[in-house]
Computed example of a mutant assay.
Amino acid sequence: MEHTGVQRTSVGDVEIAYESFGSPGDTPLLLVMGLATQMVGWPDGFCRALAERGHHVVRFDNRDIGLSTHLHDAGAPDVMSLFAGAGTAPYTLGDMADDTAGLLDALGWESAHVVGASMGGMIAQSLTIRHPQRVRSLTSIMSTTGDRAVGSPADVALGVLLAPAARDRDEALQRAVDTYRVIGSPGFEFDEAALRERAGLSFDRAYDPAGVARQLAAILTTDDRTPHLGEITVPTLVVHGAQDTLVDVSGGRATAAAIPGAELWVVEGMGHDLPQELWPELVDRIGATVQRGEEPLSS
């Protein structure tokens, strides 16, 4: 199983860090991660499982996270004002979707199958809307449409989302554990050791609370994508946890309802994460969606 180390490429004014799994000759599959989460939020084992199914898998750090460019000069936005409907964001989800299209250019991929989680699902939806020719199939996981009437966080999840930034590594690891006890999957095993390991790796790669706030600002200032989701024609899978406290399952249901022919998989016991016990079925369902996206290419 070929796994490259971190590579970097310039996309417009930012540099994007990425890694790949599998054979370059296989079907291209791009993984887009969510708010405050680096590419390692797609676990190695999950990426390898997708690669073993015949996909050339690429995961990457969005702008303002991990080893990609951090827009320090933009400062930290006033998140509370943005929640109240005031203020502006340094960039939009559309800009992040354009980053993603630029990464496809750098990879030499005319098009790819795109899987996004949480904010990554929003970016993947925006990519499909803005650059429809670049997306062969879409998988939107634990995400929403931009319509404020759906997908809202529960009060308890909003509390962890807006908690003060951790002050050091130990606090960052404990914060990750505390957060996922609130937003994680109550119907599946809570793997604290793996969570602490990933949180430590993420802290050591880069720790930038202001960058996370800028990403959140992009989410809070996004337009409702619902009308444009109706224009999506590629095979689409929508996955959502029935017990998601951060992005309510209504967001997933609305996404599937807006996209013609979308398949909706609501998972009982799943919250706002990807429990390892779900990986085999998720890989199967992504694989089936990819296959549907490949059929026009081979006919």
Rank of each mutant, 00 (worst) to 15 (best):
residue 132 P to K: 09
residue 120 G to V: 12
residue 121 G to D: 06
residue 48 R to M: 05
residue 76 A to G: 08
residue 11 V to M: 00
residue 60 F to P: 12
residue 260 P to H: 07
residue 165 A to D: 13
residue 235 P to R: 11
residue 106 A to C: 01
residue 265 W to G: 06
residue 65 I to E: 08
residue 201 L to M: 14
residue 95 D to F: 08
residue 177 V to Q: 03
residue 234 V to L: 10
residue 63 R to L: 06
residue 251 G to E: 05
residue 141 I to F: 07
residue 82 L to N: 12
residue 117 A to V: 15
residue 122 M to Y: 08
residue 31 L to T: 02
residue 103 L to D: 06
residue 208 D to E: 12
residue 101 A to D: 06
residue 211 G to T: 02
residue 20 S to G: 12
residue 142 M to K: 06
residue 275 P to M: 10
residue 184 G to R: 04
residue 169 R to Y: 08
residue 109 W to G: 05
residue 277 E to Y: 05
residue 80 M to A: 14
residue 199 A to D: 02
residue 131 H to K: 00
residue 54 G to V: 00
residue 205 R to Q: 13
residue 141 I to P: 01
residue 246 L to W: 06
residue 234 V to D: 10
residue 14 V to R: 08
residue 214 R to M: 12
residue 140 S to V: 15
residue 286 I to T: 09
residue 117 A to T: 15
residue 154 A to K: 14
residue 110 E to C: 03
residue 215 Q to G: 09
residue 280 P to S: 07
residue 108 G to W: 00
residue 21 F to D: 15
residue 140 S to P: 07
residue 96 M to R: 00
residue 71 L to N: 13
residue 38 Q to Y: 08
residue 205 R to P: 03
residue 189 E to D: 15
residue 229 L to G: 04
residue 20 S to M: 10
residue 50 L to C: 08
residue 127 L to V: 10
residue 293 G to D: 09
residue 208 D to T: 06
residue 275 P to V: 10
residue 46 F to R: 09
residue 216 L to I: 11
residue 268 E to H: 09
residue 32 V to T: 14
residue 216 L to R: 09
residue 35 L to E: 09
residue 253 R to M: 12
residue 271 G to K: 06
residue 136 R to P: 02
residue 247 V to T: 15
residue 120 G to R: 05
residue 74 A to T: 13
residue 99 D to E: 07
residue 155 D to Y: 05
residue 83 F to R: 11
residue 244 D to H: 04
residue 72 H to F: 13
residue 175 R to Q: 14
residue 254 A to Y: 01
residue 137 S to W: 06
residue 269 G to H: 08
residue 69 T to V: 10
